[in-house]
Design a protein around this nucleic acid. Structure first.
Lengths: 255, 255
DNA sequence: TAGATTGTTAATCGATTAACAATC
DNA sequence: TAGATTGTTAATCGATTAACAATC
């Protein structure tokens, strides 16, 4: 049947697609809002609209979890909240450590939505000795020297890195050595980790650049055919023939 | 040939895949680091390692931009930095407005990497009258009442939303009305925007939940076959037959 | 029963990857 | 020329979507 990527009992070779996993939190959020309004049931169409996806995708996503709906009726909100929470592992407590308590680290520590769903800021860690003991969001900052002990003592398996880029890999290595197996990286660096450790990154700069790419296209919508270089490009070290994106035309470059 | 999704001159029906666009900033970052170390050329293999992708993917990505490498030699670092920058639209100036100057908004305003690549924090906007005039990261906060004028005066086309979730949609609507066509949303809300407006979201909570999902799987690696529910799930409003993920087995639920 | 809505199928689309001919 | 490395092809994989039979 399914090729068991992990060495799990074959009975459980479920394998929910990554794209689906990434959407479950969206569904959960929409469902939680409905739950707070005491809405008892919801159709795939309604829920999909609330989550900002199309309903076929939502139903397909849910089909990986099981058959939790009722034909002709829809989905029971409370029941689905529970099932998705359980699937995501939110019925348990996840102590999180934040390393690097600068502006961003402090902002995240103060971020309310953190605690809401199973996550708990268990420790704040910083390399600056002057910060040690200072309370941030009601939690005393601890020094990096004690990182290993802090992680163990609190049973932290998820670490958040908000250090400057130069320190990120080293912090990452120490977190992993201490037993952390999931890392959320806010530093603009590619982290290398051993197999079995998950890294996700959040990168403001990358997001802006992606937006700028599309923004540029929009601006050019009613502009001339090809954007003539607004600045002189640097010369190539290797003088060689080269083709621009349009195929045979020589690239627009000063000789 | 290519189905022109946008109404552009057919000559320019290029269409770089989204997945490629999302990786260009990564390549650019790696190339910039090489440039700073004065490395003249780099092979796809080396650059791919630095960017954390595989080299076939990198070469395919670059092939959408044009033929910018030299067989047997590699890529000229400076030349490629320029080409990717241009492709991403970073050779121009992008004034950005941040709306919602709380912990996170202030942290972003202070974030250095912002200015580095074409982006410039042109305005900070907040709904709290008490904040008006207060300098954050050297920029005076302005009041929401003037949002429309601020956007126009500064030629802002990219807006960053760091308000509480309840205010996000309203702020979004106002930004769009004022002419903003790209939005980076840090509020945990689904924003609805008219066609032609791009929204990207950054969501700490979602990232953590995705990590928790995988973390849970890791923990269960050598655990019993199926995770028995640690808590009692809520009853379904609709009493109906239902199937768990394993197919025919009735779901594990208290009667 | 008639109407509504799920769960699933199958077609399509887009992204990844290995392999290798082209060519510096 | 021999060695290195790109740019491209083609196979594969995963994700999306419309459509509809199953069924409440």
């Amino acid at each position: 049947m399914a090729t068991g990527r992990t060495h799990r009992p074959a009975t459980r070779s479920r394998g929910i697609p990554e794209a689906t996993v990434a959407r479950l939190p969206l569904y959960l959020r929409a469902l939680t809002a409905l739950s707070e309004r005491s809405v008892p049931t919801v159709s795939s169409e309604e829920l999909a609209t609330a989550a900002g996806v199309n309903s076929a995708k939502l139903r397909k996503d849910f089909s990986y979890l099981g058959s939790y709906g009722t034909r002709g009726v829809g989905y029971d909100v409370e029941y689905l909240v529970y099932q998705i929470s359980r699937e995501l592992g939110l019925t348990q407590d996840w102590p999180v450590a934040i390393v690097g308590i600068g502006n961003l680290g402090a902002a995240l520590a103060n971020y309310g939505g953190f605690a809401s769903r199973g996550f708990r800021v268990a420790a704040l860690i910083d390399a600056d000795p002057a910060m040690a003991g200072t309370p941030v969001a009601g939690i005393a900052v601890q020094h990096t020297d004690d990182l290993d002990r802090i992680i163990s003592d609190n049973g932290v398996s998820i670490g958040v890195i908000t250090t400057p880029p130069g320190a990120a890999q080293q912090v990452c290595d120490r977190l992993v050595a201490a037993g952390v197996t999931s890392i959320l990286n806010f530093a603009p660096t590619v982290l290398s980790v051993p197999e079995g450790v998950d890294v996700r990154k959040v990168d403001l700069s990358i997001e802006l650049q992606i937006l700028a790419f599309h923004e540029q296209r929009k601006a050019g919508e009613d502009a001339p055919v090809e954007g003539e270089d607004p600045e002189a490009p640097p010369m190539r070290a290797t003088p060689a023939s080269r083709k621009g994106p349009d195929g045979d035309m020589p690239a627009v470059m000063p000789a």
